[in-house]
């Protein structure tokens, strides 16, 4: 199994005629994902790589049975595109774009909760269940099937880490980019809950950073007696206070936002916490192969 995404998802790409849409049609299909439709309000009736383009989501879903949306729409139209996907009945919606106003992210999250849909993003490469399907633009060669559930606030960091894990023989059940914005469709606590319920996930790897409170939600999970083993990396040890490090929520304001406080809280909860990238794979190995690591 996996979470959120497998080879049964029927994918529609909103904004399929744009540069990213065209790239993803082929990239997702090459990975074995089922792209069944695209939308473009002005290009209905066209085809992209043999995939039919519809004017709107209701038609796309009605004609093809799509149940999953990948949204490549600029920020000014992104909330409406996501609401359209949810209203058309999609159960999973990924919005990779960054620059979404936070008020729109709040409206997006509220709409998803009302309908029972899952929205991943904004500001994420998406979701991949290695060996089954991908829904986003992460580089496929970084992943291999396995039993680690990976959650990341950062896209490129997740490629780097999964590449290292895969080379070390540590495959992944699903990798979900929860994104770098403060208000997320799926936050760390919710992603952890999905992995907790997934029988194919034996352990959780979390890639976090300074700022925001997701790492404390992760610690709260890890402290529970029935929690799955958790390893984590927190980046930003060298970041100055009071400056936003690219991501909207990567800002040290209070002490709890900082690297040292997060590492301490994670370790107190029993998480194998890495202070830098180089330490992460050894921490994960310690987690999944305790005998080998202590030998």
């Amino acid at each position: 199994m996996s979470i959120l995404l497998d080879d049964t998802n029927a994918i529609v790409i909103q904004g399929i005629t744009g540069k990213m849409g065209r790239f993803s049609v082929r990239d997702i299909a090459d990975y074995g994902g089922r792209v069944v439709a695209g939308t473009s309000p002005r290009r209905a009736g066209a085809e992209v790589e043999g995939i039919p383009v519809f004017a709107d989501m209701r038609t796309a879903v009605g004609e093809t049975g799509a149940d999953t949306a990948l949204v490549y729409v600029p920020p000014a139209g992104a909330l409406d595109a996501m609401l359209e996907a949810i209203d058309a009945g999609c159960r999973l919606v990924v919005y990779p774009g960054d620059g979404l106003p936070v008020a729109d992210a709040i409206a997006m999250r509220a709409a998803a909760r009302r309908s029972g849909a899952v929205v991943v993003g904004p500001n994420t490469p998406g979701v991949i269940s290695p060996g089954k399907a991908k829904l986003g633009f992460m580089p496929s060669f970084c992943y291999r099937p396995g039993s680690l559930g990976v959650i990341s606030r950062s896209g490129s960091l997740s490629y780097e880490v999964c590449h290292r894990l895969s080379r070390a023989g540590l495959g992944q059940s699903t990798v979900v980019g929860i994104g770098g914005d403060p208000v997320k469709g799926v936050n760390a606590a919710e992603a952890v809950a999905y992995f907790h319920d997934d029988p194919a996930t034996d352990a959780i790897v979390y890639l976090g950073e300074i700022g925001g409170g997701d790492e404390y939600d992760l610690a709260a999970y890890a402290a529970q007696p029935d929690a799955k083993p958790v390893a984590a990396l927190v980046v930003g040890r060298s970041a100055p206070r009071g400056r936003k490090m690219g991501h909207a929520s990567a800002l040290i304001d209070a002490r709890a936002d900082g690297h040292a406080a997060k590492i301490a809280a994670l370790r107190a909860a029993g998480v194998c916490a890495a202070e830098t990238l180089s330490q992460l794979v050894p921490e994960v190995e310690r987690l999944v192969q305790p005998q080998a690591a202590s030998a």
Binding site: G155, E160, L207, R237, S238, T276, L277
Partner: peptide, 21 residues
């Protein structure tokens, strides 16, 4: 660099190697 998290990860490695970004 590219990506906020990866940029911070590399900043941390530069610091660990004894220099500063």
């Amino acid at each position: 660099s590219g990506g906020a998290g990866m940029t911070m990860a590399v900043m941390d490695l530069i610091a660990e190697a004894g220099s500063r970004p």
